[in-house]
């Protein structure tokens, strides 16, 4: 069959299962390639045409100039050091399949959600803050520093929202550590080790309501994240899951326009944006080019259907 939508992900990406199901319902043909399953497919690519033939048992797919879109859910950065040094065969497998998957960018006429190059750039928190500022979003005062003598208490405040400038996900043996935004006193965090890595110090947004905006093509969903009906101080992800509730939120037209401009400026067709509503302003916090959406796709929300529609459009 000739493929409308190419999906590049991993086996445990369950929200993408829903996309595949909804694409089938829409009558769109697709090929789902999971990173772990690549060698169980038989591929043959002509990068000049470009075209790709893929076979799995009795099924054969063809990708050519009629490909409409690519749903790309692959990591841009490697953040976990392997516990054991991979064998030469594993190293070869990793490097060559990764390159093959990146090489799917030969289908550059298709609409990418998102292109690896755009994701790479947009994953920089500092870059996205700069672009959001240019567009006119309100952004909390921000400093990035490893200088314990920086006058953060004067420029940002004595209490700050301390953030990493990239995901902090550390593993050690049978434990993992994940970094959340923490509200801390500058005096206590600017210790003798503060110079070891750069960190982001942001002004605390008080009395906020967290908003999660999911964007796919022309479609936008916005949810307020609440704890027992109220806004949450600090990082809402630290609140127990069963106390969180998600409510549909209508964004003002002006903010929707800014979001669309942000997506265009970052060359993204998909993004999960964190905003904070406080003091009648919509503060831009960050955008995740590969952000999760399955947790917000409750019954009737239609996110999977909406993304499938965009992919098959």
């Amino acid at each position: 069959m000739v493929v409308d939508v190419l999906i590049v992900t991993n086996r445990l990406d369950l929200p993408t299962d829903r996309l595949c199901d909804r694409l089938s319902s829409l009558g769109k043909s697709f090929l789902r390639c999971n990173r772990e399953d690549m060698s169980s497919f038989a591929f043959e690519m002509d990068p000049l045409e470009p075209s790709l033939r893929c076979r799995f048992q009795e099924t054969e797919w063809t990708i050519d100039g009629s490909l409409k879109s690519v749903w790309w859910r692959q990591p841009t950065f490697r953040r976990i050091a392997p516990e054991q040094l991979p064998t030469p065969a594993e190293q070869l497998e990793e490097s060559q399949w990764s390159a093959f998957m990146r090489g799917l960018s030969v289908f550059n006429h298709a609409r990418w959600f998102n292109s690896p190059a755009a994701t790479y750039q947009a994953e920089s928190k500092l870059f996205q803050l700069r672009i959001a500022a240019e567009i006119g979003f309100d952004i909390p005062i921000t400093r990035v520093t490893n200088d314990p003598n920086a006058e953060i208490d004067l420029t940002v405040g004595s209490q700050i929202a301390l953030k990493s400038i990239d995901t902090v996900y550390l593993t050690s043996g049978s434990f993992q550590q994940f970094g959340y935004t923490q509200l801390v006193d500058w005096d206590t965090c600017a210790d003798a080790n503060f110079h070891l890595v750069p960190a982001m110090c942001q002004a605390v947004v008080q009395d906020k309501i967290d908003l999660r905006v999911t964007v796919a093509g022309d479609q936008i969903w916005c949810d307020a994240v609440l704890n027992s009906g109220h806004g949450i101080d600090g990082d809402w992800r630290l609140i127990k899951r069963d106390r969180l509730e998600y409510r549909t939120f209508d964004l003002p037209d002006q903010i929707v326009k800014q979001i669309q401009l942000l997506m265009t400026s970052l060359n993204l067709n998909f993004g999960a944006i964190d905003l904070a509503l406080a003091q009648d302003k919509f503060w831009f916090i960050e955008i995740n080019p590969t952000g999760e959406w399955g947790w917000l796709d409750r019954a009737g929300r239609g996110i999977a259907e909406g993304i499938a529609h965009e992919l098959g459009h």
Partner: peptide, 29 residues
């Protein structure tokens, strides 16, 4: 570093699915 000190430490557990579930490669589900 303070970022490491404040990072939440939890046991590491792999994401798994129900034992009786089966992956359909062609349907992608």
């Amino acid at each position: 570093h303070v970022l490491q000190k404040l990072a939440l430490r939890t046991p590491r557990n792999a994401t798994t699915l129900r034992q009786d579930s089966e992956y359909d490669t062609v349907r992608g589900v």
